[in-house]
Simulated scan of single mutants.
Amino acid sequence: MTRRSHAQDAATKAELAPTGTLRVGLVEAPSAGLIFVSRAADGRLDGVTTDLSADLARYVDLLPAVTLFPNLGGAATALQAAAIDVSFMPIDATRRQVIDFGPTYYDLESTYLASAGSGITDVARVDRTGLRVVAIEDTTTFRAATRTLTRTQLIPVPSVAEAVARMRAGQADAFALSRDTLRPVVAQIPVSRIVAGGFQHMQVAVAVPKGRPAALACVTAWLDGAKRTGAVRRIFDARGFRDDAVAP
């Protein structure tokens, strides 16, 4: 392996974190998951991407500064504008045009959480006239639901918290989101269930602003190494996701 010079390391840091601090964009939700984070009782952030961010900050020897967003669309917009330096999000064609993605760490499935009275038991039964489906605006899940639903009313909401509130209030029949994120939501909506099947399969990856090749190479080397050494697996396990596979 070729040893990097101090100048090369300094140049990479300057491109990855121009302000001298690693500005990380994470997305907040009522429950933590493999993408979303939540606040623990002591105020600290809880979630897989919290730990991934901390591991990356240690790898590059920079202090992290976390900005929380209500949805992935907001984080993607901030990344495109270089208002943050790194984030974690599903890859889709729309985002590839404006930001760069490094390695993936998780393969997600988008599906639906259905209310007890909706009669929905699988994905095929969601697309029916009169049903109200909520999804977080400007996300890969929202765009996929828009493409696949032709008879159902799709309602954009700004956050997971808003979607949960509408489901609890009886203002929506189903909530479109990734299966891993929906699992803890079930307990927050009485007699709800996650339906069988999915309507989208996506890869979740580390992302940086476009035009930063050294930064992209740096986060690529970090995440590839973290997967190879088992660090990502340990983070999954510690956060309660022992049954979820790390992307190869």
Score class of each variant (00 low, 15 high):
113 L>F: 01
202 M>E: 14
95 R>E: 08
43 G>M: 01
210 K>G: 02
74 G>F: 01
116 A>Y: 08
170 G>V: 00
225 G>C: 09
144 A>V: 07
7 A>Y: 00
48 V>S: 15
191 V>N: 12
65 A>H: 09
92 D>Q: 04
239 R>V: 07
14 A>I: 08
215 A>E: 12
45 L>P: 01
239 R>I: 06
87 S>C: 05
244 D>C: 12
67 T>S: 06
151 R>N: 14
161 A>P: 04
24 V>S: 02
230 G>T: 00
52 L>A: 13
158 P>R: 06
195 V>I: 07
18 P>R: 01
218 C>Q: 14
189 I>V: 07
99 I>M: 09
117 G>K: 08
174 A>L: 02
91 I>C: 15
219 V>W: 06
97 Q>D: 10
209 P>N: 03
91 I>T: 14
19 T>Q: 07
32 A>N: 07
114 A>C: 07
182 L>A: 12
47 G>D: 06
30 P>N: 08
122 D>R: 07
8 Q>I: 13
167 M>L: 00
92 D>G: 08
147 R>E: 12
78 A>W: 01
244 D>M: 07
197 G>M: 14
176 A>L: 00
86 V>N: 02
71 N>L: 07
81 A>L: 09
178 S>H: 11
157 V>R: 10
99 I>D: 04
21 T>D: 04
55 D>G: 13
115 S>Q: 01
222 W>I: 11
207 A>T: 05
78 A>M: 00
79 L>T: 04
140 T>R: 08
116 A>S: 08
113 L>D: 03
34 L>W: 12
134 V>K: 04
41 A>P: 09
221 A>E: 03
209 P>Q: 03
88 F>M: 14
141 T>S: 15
104 T>N: 14
189 I>Q: 05
24 V>G: 06
111 T>S: 08
226 A>S: 11
184 P>A: 12
102 G>V: 06
32 A>Y: 05
4 R>I: 13
231 A>M: 15
215 A>H: 11
202 M>H: 12
204 V>Y: 02
190 P>F: 09
12 T>V: 15
192 S>W: 05
56 L>P: 02
3 R>V: 11
218 C>P: 10
